[in-house]
Simulated assay, not measured.
Amino acid sequence: MALPHVAAFTDTYLPTVNGVTYTVETWRDRWQARGGRMDVVYPKSDHEPGAGEYPVRSLPFPFYEGFRLGMPQIPNPVKDADLVHAHTPFSLGMAGQRLARKLEVPLVASYHTPSGEYAEYVAFNGTVESVVQAGAESYERWFLDRAAVVVAPSERTADHIRETVGTDTRLEVISNGVDTDFFRPVDTAAFRERHDLPDGPLVGYTGRHGYEKCLEDILDACEGLDVTVVFGGDGPAREDLEAVAAARDLDVRFLGFLDRAELPELYAALDVFAFPSPVETQGLVALEANCCGTPVAGVDAGALSDTVHEGETGYSYPEGDLEEFRRAIERVLDEQETLSERCLARRDSVSVEHAVGRLQAVYADVLDAPRQ
């Protein structure tokens, strides 16, 4: 049976590297490898579009550096789609919703990030931030109520959608999945030499440097430990993070954006992946680190409560408790070899192949369901 033609709409895509862009790109590639067609509609950027990628006119987003706002346009090549998958509730998500309604085909909506978490980027005081956050949740509910199914990357995120957003739309939990062919243990000698990293223990993080991710907590927790702290990636909080690091008695290295080919080397080089972000909907980078044999010291909040398996893939700590964060890092360092073996034993269960298989089943189900 032929796979459906899927039109995927996203407000963030290459060259930006984050969990959403990685998921959209990887699902698209694996869907096509199965013989299906999944086109991607995204804001025009420096990314040179390949087959099945359709940029639309975009403008810089004034509140968040590097993010572009796509105009809600529908490129002609996707106007015969069998199903629309929106990876955003905003501009291009609205275009996807409009296309699904016009074609009378199912709309599937992925919930990647709680919109209210970004209220601080557009609000100038706490009162305005609270109003923006409440408005964002109402808008999310309105958007998700119009989907045939909502895809959540973790059980904890599904709980948030039910309890906070409050949509009655059917929910399916599908992990974003990890490309386990790519994210695997690799030799790290060349990476360490290239980035002038010392031979001692490395505690690090890679991903977007957003204020909501509480990355300064890593510096607080590592103060007094005999480790080098490594940050990969970039974002609006980086400059402030560098200023704080400069004032600490710590060896801290900021590597900036890394080429994707270097990510397995970074993960494998780390002894501990430190993850203090309480706002994750899955925490994909933690799973990538695990697949490279690196355990996690992560906050017991958001989706990380499900992602970090205590004593198996790392250790967790209560949100805001820096002493316990330090203790979690120390425990991972002490048990690094055993935890690493346990991380590698779980690789198949978090693979992207498993995720796309689940996605295929959900698509088939909503396409077979009576249209409303």
Rank of each mutant, 00 (worst) to 15 (best):
residue 314 G to R: 09
residue 261 A to M: 13
residue 284 L to R: 03
residue 288 E to V: 06
residue 271 D to R: 10
residue 279 V to P: 00
residue 261 A to W: 02
residue 309 H to W: 11
residue 329 I to S: 10
residue 310 E to L: 05
residue 283 G to V: 06
residue 313 T to H: 12
residue 318 P to S: 13
residue 310 E to S: 07
residue 317 Y to E: 11
residue 274 A to E: 02
residue 328 A to W: 01
residue 292 C to A: 01
residue 322 L to D: 05
residue 290 N to F: 13
residue 288 E to Q: 15
residue 305 S to E: 14
residue 320 G to P: 01
residue 291 C to L: 03
residue 280 E to G: 05
residue 292 C to V: 07
residue 310 E to N: 09
residue 302 G to D: 04
residue 281 T to I: 11
residue 277 S to H: 05
residue 279 V to M: 11
residue 284 L to Y: 01
residue 278 P to K: 13
residue 313 T to K: 10
residue 297 A to Y: 04
residue 322 L to G: 00
residue 275 F to K: 01
residue 271 D to N: 14
residue 324 E to H: 14
residue 310 E to I: 04
residue 326 R to H: 03
residue 274 A to C: 09
residue 280 E to F: 06
residue 315 Y to K: 06
residue 304 L to C: 05
residue 324 E to V: 10
residue 289 A to F: 10
residue 314 G to H: 10
residue 270 L to A: 06
residue 275 F to M: 13
residue 305 S to W: 00
residue 273 F to S: 04
residue 322 L to E: 09
residue 283 G to M: 11
residue 303 A to N: 13
residue 264 P to C: 13
residue 288 E to I: 12
residue 302 G to W: 06
residue 316 S to R: 15
residue 299 V to D: 02
residue 326 R to C: 04
residue 301 A to L: 07
residue 295 P to D: 04
residue 264 P to D: 13
residue 299 V to C: 04
residue 271 D to F: 01
residue 294 T to H: 09
residue 324 E to N: 09
residue 287 L to Y: 00
residue 301 A to G: 11
residue 297 A to M: 09
residue 315 Y to I: 01
residue 286 A to V: 15
residue 314 G to N: 07
residue 275 F to I: 02
residue 264 P to Y: 08
residue 307 T to A: 09
residue 270 L to T: 07
residue 316 S to M: 09
residue 321 D to V: 07
residue 309 H to F: 05
residue 321 D to C: 05
residue 282 Q to G: 02
residue 315 Y to C: 03
residue 273 F to V: 12
residue 314 G to P: 05
residue 288 E to T: 03
residue 306 D to S: 14
residue 314 G to Q: 08
residue 307 T to C: 07
residue 259 D to R: 14
residue 316 S to K: 14
residue 308 V to Y: 06
residue 300 D to A: 14
residue 308 V to D: 02
residue 323 E to C: 00
residue 309 H to A: 15
residue 277 S to Q: 08
residue 313 T to P: 07
residue 297 A to P: 02
residue 305 S to M: 05
residue 272 V to Q: 09
residue 286 A to W: 00
residue 311 G to H: 07
residue 293 G to L: 12
residue 300 D to F: 08
residue 296 V to P: 00
residue 300 D to Q: 14
residue 305 S to P: 00
residue 327 R to H: 14
residue 297 A to C: 11
residue 300 D to C: 04
residue 309 H to V: 15
residue 310 E to Q: 14
residue 285 V to E: 02
residue 290 N to L: 03
residue 265 E to M: 10
residue 282 Q to E: 15
residue 282 Q to H: 10
residue 283 G to A: 11
residue 276 P to R: 11
residue 269 A to N: 08
residue 310 E to P: 00
residue 270 L to H: 03
residue 328 A to D: 10
residue 325 F to N: 02
residue 275 F to S: 04
residue 260 R to S: 13
residue 293 G to I: 12
residue 295 P to K: 01
residue 296 V to R: 01
residue 293 G to Y: 11
residue 259 D to Q: 13
residue 265 E to I: 00
residue 295 P to V: 02
residue 269 A to C: 10
residue 303 A to Y: 07
residue 324 E to A: 15
residue 259 D to H: 13
residue 278 P to D: 12
residue 320 G to C: 04
residue 305 S to C: 01
residue 302 G to T: 07
residue 301 A to Q: 05
residue 288 E to H: 11
residue 277 S to M: 05
residue 279 V to N: 15
residue 283 G to W: 06
residue 280 E to I: 09
residue 287 L to A: 08
residue 325 F to T: 03
residue 322 L to F: 01
residue 271 D to E: 12
residue 319 E to C: 00
